[in-house]
Amino acid sequence: MLSNDDIKHLAQLARISLSQEEEQKLMKDLGGILGYVSEIGKVVTEAGEPSAGELRNVMREDESREGGAYTGSILANAPQCEGKYLKVKQIF
């Protein structure tokens, strides 16, 4: 079971602000989901390197492309920028 502090810690790690009401709801929801997915613990699996897929070489030539072609449209999507820089709030 997850505690309220666990939820607060996860929310901090995930950089998501939550209301108190939602913390309560998530404690219940995540507890239920984790109970359900814990089923996989019943499967006897072999020890060894877990891999997420087929391994094959996907290297390609290292070619340079025209620089700056996307700069304008990418910056246009930013909530705040100054010149060619993204602008952020003070860090502390």
């Binding site: 939820i7 929310a11 790690l13 939550l18 939602e22 998530l26 929801d29 989901i33």
Partner: peptide
């Protein structure tokens, strides 16, 4: 939000 927390 639920899935991001679960994944975390």
């Amino acid at each position: 939000r639920r899935r991001v927390l679960l994944g975390t």
